[in-house]
């Protein structure tokens, strides 16, 4: 493993498989236990440095670090010296001076974790940077697919929706490609990035045509907060053409699963009845997130041969 986890491209197939296998062993080791805590990272400090709102990612990283007995400091930009104008670099150096061993960073600017990794001595984990990447989400998605379907090689994954603004989509495309899955992205042309032609994916615009050949459908959130122009005529039209409702779900093969990284816009990209169906892995994804992040923290922070 490398020292940092900044993007899905940091992981080759062996590394990615090591993370998934480690997570599976951790899950097995903790299953059915009363004390869900391991002493592995005792005395290490993990800082959650969040410049952007988050529920599940921050809590998930916090829980993962605590279950490995690390000390956790939660930092959110609101209510800190960032509002007095302190820069990312000074904030990070301050935290490091206080003895942090790893920084888990979420930032609205793409590339912020890369800059951070050049300034600090400890490990940096990207927990989502702008519209760039969110590698641990891709790892937990891959883990969930492998858990449900038993394999990743040759699995046909359809990513649907706001690919343009989605860091989850970027990380998933690269990681799933590394792990041997066949990825198709389906979106309105206005919500596809310019460079999508160079991605290792098939591009489609018709959801109904893609569904019957899918083992996994991954719905992406329509990111209203990043939409500074009109990308589609109306929410209703988007939902009619690219939303996953019960009728569309019926077109999927029998053992196909439906995923969503959350938070969901119920009724927009995914209908409530689909989100709550037995095909949906949305709740599993959240639970697996803790396990996979424990594996990442263990592999990055556990220690290196001296």
């Amino acid at each position: 493993m490398r020292k940092h986890l900044l993007e899905a491209g940091d992981l080759d197939r062996a590394d990615a498989t090591l993370v998934l296998d480690t997570a599976a062993q951790i899950e097995a080791a903790l299953a059915g236990r009363e004390v869900k805590k391991l002493p592995t990272l005792r005395g290490r400090t993990v800082v959650n440095l969040f410049f952007e709102d988050s529920t599940r990612t921050r809590i998930s990283f916090e829980l993962a670090a605590k279950r490995l007995s690390a000390d956790v400091i939660n930092f959110s930009a609101k209510g800190s010296s960032v509002s007095k104008g302190e820069s990312l670099k000074d904030t990070a150096l301050t935290l490091e001076a206080m003895g942090s061993d790893a920084i888990v960073v979420r930032h609205p600017a793409s590339g912020a974790p890369h800059r951070l990794a050049q300034w600090v001595k400890g490990s940096v984990v990207n927990a989502g940077d702008g519209t760039h990447e969110h590698p641990t989400q891709a790892l937990l998605d891959a883990y969930t697919i492998r858990q449900r379907l038993g394999r990743l090689d040759g699995v046909r994954v359809v990513l649907v929706g706001d690919v343009l603004h989605s860091r989850v989509a970027r990380s998933n495309v690269w990681l799933l490609h590394t792990l041997g899955a066949e990825v198709t992205v389906v979106a309105p042309p206005t919500l596809l990035p310019v460079g999508v032609g160079s991605w290792p994916v098939t591009v489609g615009y018709d959801l109904d045509a893609a569904l019957p050949k899918a083992d996994v459908v991954m719905m992406l959130r329509v990111q209203a907060e990043r939409m500074n122009a009109s990308f589609f005529p109306s929410a209703r039209e988007y939902s009619r053409r690219y939303g996953l409702d019960a009728r569309r779900m019926a077109a999927l093969p029998d053992d196909a699963i439906v995923m969503h990284p959350g938070p969901m816009n119920r009724g927009m990209e995914i209908a409530a009845e689909v989100a709550d169906s037995v095909r949906s892995t949305i709740v599993d994804q959240v639970g697996n997130g803790v396990t996979v992040r424990m594996a990442v923290l263990y592999l990055l922070l556990g220690g290196s041969p001296s």
Partner: peptide, 22 residues
């Protein structure tokens, strides 16, 4: 019982792949 996550020498010997606990 895999003991990797309980070892006291992780820092010096480095991380290693976990094995099964069942």
């Amino acid at each position: 019982v895999d003991i990797t996550l309980y070892r006291d020498d992780l820092r010096t010997r480095g991380v290693r792949a976990l094995e099964e606990t069942r």
